[in-house]
Design a protein around this nucleic acid. Structure first.
Lengths: 208, 208, 208, 208
DNA sequence: CGGTAATCGAGACGGTACGTCATGTCTTACA
DNA sequence: TGTAAGACATGACGTACCGTCTCGATTACCG
């Protein structure tokens, strides 16, 4: 994310190599991300202006642009950070149904509690146009969950719960696809019941 | 779409009631929609400016704003019109698999031939924020296809192809959801093969 | 003013030569002029739009443009008509002071009773740019009064009230100039008292 | 003119108090004023667009609107600045006639050399409608000259050149009024000869 | 402890698009 | 032919946001 002038990327947290000059203000960084998250959830990406972020964070616009190359990149990181906190990282319930439920139910609950759909749609839209952004988006929002899913299916196969030769990518799309579909199109409720129905259907489709 | 001053909405084509005053220029209307479609596909919604549409259509901006309340509304109608043309309206192949294929394969081909994903993502994003727009979007892009799908499932049930009590809305989300998912996230190919896999999985999940 | 297509100018009132086609609607003409006058006095020239005139007059814009070439020309005629009504046409009081008072006092009263200053300023401004308009303006608003003034001075000279060789044009500018000055700059009251002061000063300046 | 956020108005030239933030570009400010002046003289106020000013000054429209609230306000300051340069500030020739000549002759010459009449008419027109603008106009274009005039008359009275009890405001209107009258109505030449005639007449009118 | 270097705040700037509005022309149906 | 209705091209308006920039002030380290 960061535009590095010298040395390796240090988006997350720099190793404690003492640098010359005034160090980056951690307080500003957090204020920016918090302000961005709030504004995104309140007004969406289009309605959240950099001037507003700067003002709410008590920070200058130049500071923001020093560390994030664009509004979209900032939004990406802000949402990622807000999201990451409650994500269940280690999942292994012992059954495929349990694993899938443990993956999908928290996602749905998170997405329902605040208007994340609007922000996610905007990020997805931006990813269609900007390849750099697309890669960032995929690395943070898509791949981790797919990897988690692949691991769950692999464990299920090892347990003999599902036949070998299952196309896991298709299966994952049939799990996440419907959820995103209801999130973005809002034509029908996105709740635990729907998650259960989707998981049931996928499991049935695998059972021969 | 049109801002009607008196009488019922006549977005599509007005009945031939002779009105006073200079009639709307059909030529301008089409030029605007065509120009919009092209610019959307070339640059996306954010990159397509109203000034550019006006210039390419050989039309004044005021004329555009007379008939469409916003850029997004114009984009919606332009994409809808470009889309509608090749849509298979009447589908009844005699089997559920055939019907679903007839619905989904053309959709996938259409979506692949030009960068519609970018535009659809932008429309979906706008729908998250503007309720009026959301309704327009749903009426034109979501509901017709769902209605078509419900009819196909109803015929299949009547034929005894599928059990009674199938939750059709869930089934439709499991068909369209994965397609939209690959369209918007682009993590894996969206092709006829994938359509077949998805249909197979859904049919298997219904077979008890 | 009128754009004549065939035949002589008939701005004032056409001779009753029977013409082909539907005759001009006298009612519309008056409604347009009245509406224009009212809008000019309410909002000034810039704030009075042709659409507003058309609407208030219950007339179509095309009708206005058929008879007047521009908004300014219409305003000119409207103000002229509103003005002309109360103008004292024949003046001969027997003394120069009396004649001047008879010329200037009604002018001042008229100009004070409604916000004519704003409209006159706008007409003067337009006259600076458009030569055709300037000539119209001068013919209607400047020359008649100057001619009247010249006649008054001529009678005074004939009576021996003032010396021969008086530069009447300068004298007239010293009478009307201060009035317009206060009308347009509004730095000091424009009332009967001021008129008397100006006339007194001019007469004193002529007395040798 | 400037919209001051904190502290006193500093339209003219800010005292050298070091402020935070990027300082205002003096170069841009001058370029804007110069471009405005030229466009005003070439095309008048109505014909001088903000887009044209921005382009000619090599400046963005937003920059102009940051410092001037409207086109008219910008025009006012531009004309004022162009005007002020050659104004004789200190006048005391020893005689009232000399003082008046020193005031009026440069004014007439200035006004004749370029089409200022058109611009002044437009400013006067605007002042009729916008009270804020009117005050700005009066402060810059009317009051300074009247104050100068009052001082000249006061000196003349102190010298015994004119009687006591002269109504100076009337006298000033009889001096400037005719000049503005010829400037704006253009019915007769506005030259040094006319200035001399007007001054003569006013002085005669004061000599009992 | 003074110098060096980077960050931060404030905020002006060029650029670009937005959506609105007014002028004056044109097209149709009706009188 | 004149008129009402109203669509249209043209083009200016004033606003908002983006991303860059120029300052002076601040906060570290390093010699």
């Amino acid at each position: 994310m960061r535009v590095e002038r010298d040395g390796p990327a240090v988006t997350e947290r720099a190793a404690a190599v003492p640098r010359r000059g005034r160090p980056r203000s951690e307080q500003s960084r957090l204020a920016i991300l918090d302000a961005t998250t709030e504004l995104l959830l309140e007004h969406g990406l289009a309605g959240a202006s950099m001037d507003a972020v700067a003002e709410r964070a008590g920070v200058s616009k130049a500071t923001i642009y020093r560390w994030w190359p664009s509004k979209e990149a900032l939004a990406l990181e802000a949402v990622y950070r807000a999201w990451k906190g409650e994500e269940p990282s280690q999942i292994d319930t012992g059954s495929l149904r349990g694993d899938l439920r443990a993956m999908l139910v928290p996602w749905v609950r998170r997405v329902r509690e605040r208007p994340y759909g609007r922000v996610i749609a905007a990020l997805v839209t931006e990813a269609q146009t900007d390849p750099t952004f697309e890669e960032q988006y995929r690395t943070r929002f898509v791949e981790p969950r797919r990897e988690q899913g692949r691991a769950a299916f692999a464990r299920a196969a090892a347990r003999g719960e599902i036949p070998t030769g299952v196309d896991v990518d298709v299966a994952l799309d049939m799990l996440y696809g419907p959820l995103y579909h209801r999130l973005l199109h809002r034509h029908a409720p996105l709740n635990d019941r729907f998650v259960a129905d989707v998981i049931d259907a996928v499991l049935r489709s695998l059972a021969r």
